[in-house]
Nucleic acid binder design. Structure first.
Lengths: 221, 221
DNA sequence: CTGGTGAATATTGGATCCAATCTGCTACGG
DNA sequence: CCGTAGCAGATTGGATCCAATATTCACCAG
C-alpha cells in the first residue's frame, strides 16, 4: 500500500474547474467569448452537468458572467475594473502583511525565502505559466501567515480575476528581472519584521504590475 | 399587453438561490446542519439539479462548505471568523465611504436620507426581517455610490456571511433605537462631505454590532 | 467488551433525455 | 428597400435515471 501523496481528482466538477481555471489563465478561454457548454463538455470528456457546476463557481468569483437562457461569457475587464482590483488588493494585502509580520516565526521567513527561490527557478525555465504559479505560491504563503482565511479567499478571487492579464506582465523579460529584486526586498523586510518596509515593497511590486497591464490593455483598446 | 413590472422567476436555480438565502437568514437552515439535497429539492418543488447549482454559488460565497461525496453543510462562524469579517468590512467600507464622498451629489444625499427613513418605517413594524433588509438597502446604497462594483460585491458577501448572526442584534430593542441615531449621524456627515466623520460613524455602528454579536455567540458556546 | 470487517442503505455525482428559450434566417407586407 | 412576423435550428434549463461513494449497522474474531 504505497501511501504516496499522489494527486487525484475526486470528482469531475473539481477536475473541470481546475481545467477551466487553466484555460482562463492561458487565454484559451478568451475574455468576452461565450462558453458553449456542449462543445466544451465534450472536449473535457464529461457531460454538461459537472461543467455547469464548475461554471457556477466561476460565476460566483466573477470570472464568468451569466445570463439566464443565454449562458456564460468569459468576463472582460475594463481598465477601470483592473484599477479597482489593484486598489482592493492594496487594501487587503497591506492588512495581510501587517498581520503576518506580527506573528512571523523564523521558520516562516525561511519558507518564504525558499518560495522566493522557487520563483527564480521557474524564471530560469522561461515558462510563463510556471513563473505565474510560483509567484502566486510565494505571495499566498505570506498572505496565509496572516491567519485570516476569508482575507486569503478574497485575495485569491482578486488574483484570479486578473490572472489572464498578468500573464502579459510576466511575458516581459525586464519585468521578470525586477521581480527577483522586489521579492528579495520583501523577504528582507519581513526578516527584519519591518511591516512598513514590507508594505512598501508590495506596493511597488503592484504598482509596476498595474502600470504594465493597463498599458497593455489600453494598447489593444 | 400590460407591461406591468411584475416579478417573475426566470429560472428555477435563481428562485432556489433566493429561497436558500432567505432560509439562511432566518436560520431555517441552521449553521452546522447538513444539506439533504433530495428532501430540500422536494420541499422547493424542483429537482436536485437547480438546487445543486444554487448551492455552488453559496459555496463560492462561503455560505456553505462542500466536501466531495459528503455534500454541503451550512457554514458555521467562530468568533474569530466573525471578528475577521468585521475587520475586512472596516477596511473595505472605509474605502467605499471615502470614494462615495468624493462624488456625492445632493440627490444622492436625499436618496440616502430617504433610505434611512425607510429603516425607521421598518423599525416601527417590529419585523426583524424587514428591518434587516431596509438597513441593508441603506448601507449598500451608500456603498454603490463609490462606483466600485467589485468592492460592493465583496462587501455583499461579507454581509451575507454574518446575516444570521446579525439578526440577534436587531432583535434587541435598545440596538434598534441606537441605529436610528447612528444612521442620522452618518447621513449628516455625508451631507457635509465630511469623510472622516462618516467613517467614524460607520466604525461606531460596526463596533456596536460586533460587540453584541460576539457576546451572543460566546454565550451559547 | 473492543475492534474491525462486511454487507445493506442512504446520499451524492454524473449522464442522458426532454422542455423551454433564444437566435438567425426567410418570407411577406408596406 | 426596409421592417417585421414567424418558422427552424441551436443552446440552455431541468428532470429522471443510473453509478459511485460514504455511512450505518450487524456480525464475528480476539
Amino acid at each position: 500500500m504505497s501511501a504516496v501523496p499522489f494527486e487525484k481528482p475526486p470528482t469531475a466538477q473539481e477536475a473541470v474547474l481546475a481545467e477551466l481555471r487553466r484555460m482562463l489563465v492561458t487565454g484559451e478561454l478568451a475574455p468576452g467569448s461565450p462558453v458553449r457548454q456542449e462543445a466544451l463538455a465534450e472536449r473535457l470528456g464529461v457531460s454538461r452537468v459537472p461543467l455547469r457546476e464548475a461554471l457556477k463557481v466561476l460565476e460566483g468569483e466573477g470570472q464568468v458572467v451569466y445570463a439566464a437562457h443565454r449562458g456564460y461569457v468569459v468576463a472582460e475587464l475594463s481598465v477601470d475594473d483592473l484599477v479597482e482590483v489593484y486598489r482592493l488588493r492594496e487594501l487587503l494585502e497591506t492588512e495581510a502583511v501587517r498581520r503576518a509580520v506580527e506573528q512571523l516565526t523564523d521558520d516562516d521567513v525561511a519558507a518564504l525565502q525558499a518560495a522566493a527561490s522557487e520563483v527564480d527557478v521557474a524564471d530560469r525555465t522561461g515558462d510563463v505559466a510556471l513563473i505565474t504559479a510560483a509567484n502566486r505560491r510565494f505571495h499566498f504563503l505570506l498572505f496565509d501567515l496572516a491567519g485570516m482565511p476569508r482575507l486569503t479567499r478574497t485575495l485569491r478571487q482578486l488574483w484570479d480575476a486578473t490572472d489572464v492579464y498578468r500573464s502579459v506582465y510576466f511575458a516581459e523579460r525586464a519585468n521578470r528581472d525586477r521581480i527577483h529584486d522586489e521579492h528579495l526586498a520583501l523577504v528582507d523586510a519581513l526578516a527584519r519584521r519591518d511591516a512598513g518596509a514590507a508594505v512598501a515593497a508590495q506596493d511597488a511590486h503592484r504598482a509596476h504590475s498595474v502600470a504594465a497591464v493597463t498599458a497593455a490593455l489600453e494598447a489593444r483598446g
